[in-house]
Simulated assay, not measured.
Amino acid sequence: MNMPQLGLGTFRLQGRQAVDSVATGLELGYRHIDTAQIYGNEEDVGAALAASHVARADVFVTTKIWTANLAGDLVAPSLEESLRKLGLEQVDLTLVHWPSPGHAVPVRETMEALLAAREAGLTAAIGISNFPVSLMVEAIDAVGSHNIATNQVELHPYLQNRRVAAFARETGIHVTAYMPLAYGKVMDDPVIKSIAARHGATAAQVTLAWLLAKDYAVIPSSTKRANLASNLAASRLQLNADDIAALDALDRGERLVSPEFAPQWD
Rank of each mutant, 00 (worst) to 15 (best):
E42F: 07
A249P: 01
Y178M: 01
D44W: 01
A234I: 15
A168E: 06
A120Q: 14
V96T: 02
V91D: 05
V206K: 02
P180D: 06
W66Q: 04
L232P: 06
S78W: 12
N69S: 15
D243Q: 03
R108L: 02
L114H: 05
K185H: 06
P101A: 03
L256G: 08
V257W: 12
R31I: 00
V45L: 09
P4H: 11
D44H: 09
A124T: 06
N231Y: 13
V186L: 08
N147E: 13
V164N: 14
K64H: 08
W265Q: 07
A233Q: 12
P259M: 01
Q37M: 01
A177I: 06
S100N: 08
D266C: 06
D73M: 09
A57F: 00
P4R: 12
L211K: 00
R118L: 03
G253W: 12
L122I: 01
Q17A: 15
S258T: 10
L228T: 13
V22A: 08
P259W: 04
T171C: 08
A203H: 01
D251I: 08
Y183P: 00
R255G: 00
P263H: 12
T123Y: 08
W66Y: 12
E80F: 00
E42Q: 14
V105Y: 10
L13P: 07
D251N: 15
Q264A: 14
D189Q: 02
T123H: 10
T202S: 13
P190C: 07
R56W: 04
T62V: 10
E109G: 10
